[in-house]
């Protein structure tokens, strides 16, 4: 009897598993990236394929949007396409939205292919091809503000000005001062226990599974309790690139400490820079940005009232007003 039951059970088991969905296949738990879905708007350069959209007159001055993360995407920044006070950015500017290397819906890569040097080369390629011979404006949120600063520092002649929407620490030394507040790694934190418990079911062993698992943190309000977010914040994302997030962070670390310095070349530029802070962020909010203001020779700071770190998504009209104000002042210089 037992000798008959075993093959029957084994056959049933194989049949059941064969009918299961594949957690590693994009499209099931996470959306496909541009290399897997040709219908997505995209552009290929520097050995990768990027999720890319541009709006506005092709001969207009260019704004390049830089999303946060590293690893996140530009979905939330698209809220800055809306009209405020009867005008839209893309009425007067060519506005480029894209997902950075290995991030959002852009092609995935191994960690070795995700470095700050490549990120710098990617943005440089983009600047040269969307705005040949004319400096661009950079608008970066969070990590995107850090990325914009690094580019401004390395290529001051190619940047007309920037709006840095609550950028993270521009140097490793500043990061060390606030690192405990950036991610809540309290061993009793609910989001952390939820994440680690879930990894016994779903291993982060490929891009699709790792990116999906990361959302347990991204969607948990207690992962960054000091950032002023609220549970009902209407924030949206497409997909988070975990390997890009980890690789770019690792590229700026040595011996477990932050060692990057995105400010080394800022003395060479007088490009107008506006830093924008949220009023509720207790970690990298107004007080922190006031310190970062000192890295720039031609910069000011504006605070968005009653907002948390995701203000470009939750307060797009207020965000657009401070962007317009800065562009109107500096863009005509």
């Amino acid at each position: 009897m037992h000798t008959r039951l075993f093959p029957l059970a084994a056959t049933l088991g194989v049949a059941l598993l064969a009918g299961c969905l594949d957690p590693s296949q994009a499209g099931h738990l996470v959306p496909k990236t541009v290399d897997q879905d040709p219908a997505l708007p995209q552009v290929a350069f520097n050995g990768s394929r990027f999720h890319f959209q541009a709006f506005g007159p092709t001969d207009a001055p260019v704004i390049i949007m830089l999303h946060g993360g590293p690893g996140s995407d530009h979905r939330g920044l698209l809220r800055l396409r809306q009209a405020v006070d009867g005008r839209r950015l893309e009425d007067r500017w060519r506005v480029v939205y894209w997902d950075q290397r290995g991030a959002g819906l852009s092609q995935r890569h191994d960690a070795a292919e995700l470095t700050m040097a490549r990120y710098d080369a990617d943005l440089d390629w983009l600047v040269d091809h969307v705005s040949p011979g004319r400096p661009v404006w950079l608008v970066g949120h969070s990590w995107g503000g850090m990325y914009a600063t690094a580019y401004l520092s390395n290529h001051p002649e190619k940047v007309a000005g920037a709006v840095l929407l609550e950028p993270g620490p521009l140097t490793g030394a500043l990061f060390e001062e606030v690192r405990d507040g950036i991610v809540n790694l309290d061993v009793f934190a609910e989001w952390l226990n939820d994440y680690t418990w879930a990894t016994r079911i779903l291993s982060p062993d490929d891009h699709a599974r790792a990116d999906f698992l990361q959302l347990t943190a991204l969607l948990s309000p207690d992962a960054q309790p000091g950032f002023g977010g609220r549970p009902d914040d209407d924030t949206v994302y497409w997909r988070f690139g975990v390997v890009a997030n980890q690789a770019i962070q690792a590229d700026g670390m040595a011996g477990g400490k932050g060692v990057w310095d995105f400010t080394t070349g800022l003395a060479q530029t007088q490009a107008p820079v506006r830093l924008v802070a949220s009023s509720r962020n207790e970690v990298i909010g107004e007080a922190f940005q006031r310190r970062q203001l000192g890295f720039f020779s031609n910069a000011d700071l504006v605070v968005i009232d009653d907002s948390g770190h995701e203000f470009p998504q939750t307060h797009p009209a207020a965000t657009l007003r401070v962007i317009f104000e800065h562009l109107d002042a500096g863009g005509r210089q």
């Binding site: 299961c20 969905l21 594949d22 779903l202 969607l219 497409w238």
Partner: peptide
Amino acid sequence: RKVYPQARDGWYGHPGGT
């Protein structure tokens, strides 16, 4: 609502190991 409306419910085969 916030990320991927088309995410699929269902049985997933061998999703992890430790």
